[in-house]
Design a protein around this nucleic acid. Sequence first.
DNA 1: TATTGTTATACTCTATAACTATA
DNA 2: TATAGTTATAGAGTATAACAATA
Lengths: 155, 155
Amino acid sequence: MTRDAPPEVLTSRLGYLFKHAHLRLAEESARALAPHGIDGRELAVLAVLDAHDELSQLEAAGKLGIDRTTMVALIDTLEGKELVERRRSPSDRRKNIVQLTAAGRERLRGAELARQEMERRFLAPLSSTDATRLVRSLQALVGAPASTGHAPDSV
Amino acid sequence: MTRDAPPEVLTSRLGYLFKHAHLRLAEESARALAPHGIDGRELAVLAVLDAHDELSQLEAAGKLGIDRTTMVALIDTLEGKELVERRRSPSDRRKNIVQLTAAGRERLRGAELARQEMERRFLAPLSSTDATRLVRSLQALVGAPASTGHAPDSV
DNA sequence: TATTGTTATACTCTATAACTATA
DNA sequence: TATAGTTATAGAGTATAACAATA
């Protein structure tokens, strides 16, 4: 795909800017996480599982905003890498409680450092105050909970 | 897909923020453009064709950053709506020059107003200075040409 | 009867390869 | 031999439907 410099008629559009910011970050993210053997979505799953104990597949999917059918394949992959374990909930045997293994916690730690370093590099073209303002503005636009408060999890 | 409030471990991630900002904007964009009978990408094509005269399909695709095979279907759709016309270039009969019809120019005008109004509403949670800073920061991150200058088109 | 996990299927979007006509 | 347009095909990603086990 031969790509010109984008014309101003595109770079003034919010849709173009969000899409390409996301694309560029996805590239950097893939590069940064490749040595750790996971992708960005798998890292998000590990982070959510680490932050909340005793989550079932469905509860974790709810927090991540992904479908339960998608979650099955994701957990299959992570279990294959021995980063998470499924076990039946004793109180409700329909549920699979998903937990990090020791290796999963260690992998999470290393990959999180790589992600933070990648984001720092990605935002390097901005002053640190502009970078902070960007993140705050994005959080306001996607309706994220206020960063000073605690996340109002509904589980 | 049952969606919880996103946990803080996600809303602090740049990847999550870009993706969901894009998703939310895409929803609003679809809603705003539906009455005009085109989607956001079709609008972008019309805008590029309007801004540059005598573009071939491949040249337009280059400016939009999309594949020439994707461009074929896009132009098919727009031609079916009688918003653009293909005509053979006299100087190189391999090329299709794509041009807006009178109806295409009119549709573009109305849809552009709808898009601008939609973006204004989308950014309403931010102060106007924060909104301006957000756009400037995104342009800096995406490597857009400086907004004060002219677009360095390579065609 | 409803819910959780699972599998199979369909659908969208995009990328790749190959064909044609022109150069 | 290379390029522009086109078509067909294949792949990733996601959504939908249906099924088994459990509540």
